[in-house]
Amino acid sequence: MKTIGHITTEYLPITETFVYHQIVRNSQFRNVVFTRKITNEQVFPINHLVRIQKEAELTNMLRKYQVDALHSHFGPSALYALQAKETLGIPMLTFFHGYDARKYPFLNNKVQEYQRLFTIGELFLTPSNAIKEELLSMGCPENKVRVSHLGIDINQFHYQPRTLDDKEKTIRIVSVGRLVEKKGHHLLLEALSIVKKKMSHFHLTIVGEGREYQNLVDQINRLKLHDHIHLAGKLHHSEVKSVLDKAHIFCLASVSGKDGDMEGLPVSILESQASGLPIVSTRHSGIPEGVVEGKSAILAEENNPTDLANKLLEMMSQPEKWIEFGSAGREWVVQHFNAEKQAEELRDIYFELLGNDRK
């Protein structure tokens, strides 16, 4: 059995369930994680987890565990592993997800190091064409970069048609994402202040925590939306699914941050579609690739709260179409974003890195 060495700067933030799935679903390989920091180990149990205190230790530990190929999760992890990769001559793929392709290299003066990585690394994966274009713009050879959509566990999400019965008047909207600028929660609040003037029977639950919390609280009070908004904070994955199950509409107002941070393809949109929720979101980064515009989702222009308000009003005023949108979204995710299919594709990529040695 071949050994894949997974490189992370931290194992594992609670928001990076998709990284965990990439590691554990490939049971045809012995998976060993090398990391500088360990968190949430009980949430993400794994057989082989190695903490690296100093960068110089990585080469020795890769040799000790007889690693055959490297999978670096995010660009900074790849830079961390690059010297060891060169020393040992181990093939490496790097999966970029969003901030590491646009924000990180420019804020941290890492563009030249990335260009060296593009020369030395064998393969680079991105969750969307938008992130692929970011790598190409920094000089990544086109023949080295591919789009590899993230998958979700379809069976974890119970599909249910969304309806609004005669007794139920409040339309429940949910948004899931860290409280950071690129998630656009501040724009969603602005949009809902416009919506409220025409349709006031709604309630929004925002799931997530982050540095924008107090700013959002202040904005909610300023816009007099405190009766319509609930900031739920960080929830366990099972609790998030429960919130999704109770909602009528999912909305994510993603936007490019002032510091250049951007989305890849938000997993929350895939999970919401798998649950049967109609989607309202923005034409930002990989989001148009993760939905079927006009069939599973209505998309607004990025950074335009007025347009977002109009799209929300359009969806809210047509509950008879929610089932149609939800059904189309579930089918789209099952066909194109199934974690089992993604694991098979990643398995084949590993074998390709190993020269198709399947022993």
Rank of each mutant, 00 (worst) to 15 (best):
I52Q: 12
I52D: 11
Q53S: 15
K54A: 14
K54R: 14
E57Q: 15
E57G: 04
L58Y: 09
L62F: 14
R63S: 15
Y65D: 06
Q66M: 11
A69K: 00
H71K: 06
S72T: 13
H73F: 15
G75D: 09
G75W: 04
L79W: 08
Y80R: 08
L82Y: 06
L82E: 13
Q83F: 03
A84F: 02
A84N: 02
E86L: 12
G89M: 08
T94D: 07
F95R: 01
F95W: 03
F96W: 08
H97L: 04
D100V: 13
D100M: 03
R102T: 15
R102Y: 05
K103D: 14
P105F: 11
P105S: 11
N109Y: 01
K110Y: 03
K110Q: 15
V111W: 04
Y114P: 04
L117V: 06
L117W: 03
T119E: 15
G121D: 07
G121N: 07
E122R: 12
L123Y: 12
L125E: 10
P127W: 05
S128E: 01
N129V: 01
I131V: 08
I131Y: 01
I131L: 00
E134F: 03
L135F: 07
L135M: 08
S137Y: 06
C140Q: 12
P141H: 04
P141D: 00
E142L: 09
E142Q: 14
N143C: 06
N143I: 12
V145Q: 04
V145L: 04
R146C: 07
V147H: 03
V147T: 15
S148Y: 13
H149Q: 03
I152V: 13
D153V: 09
I154P: 00
N155K: 14
F157E: 11
F157V: 08
Y159R: 08
Y159I: 01
T163S: 09
D166W: 03
E168H: 15
K169A: 12
T170W: 01
I171E: 10
I171D: 08
R172L: 09
S175Q: 04
V176C: 09
L179W: 06
G184P: 04
G184Y: 01
H185I: 06
H186E: 10
L187E: 13
L187D: 12
L189S: 04
L189Y: 13
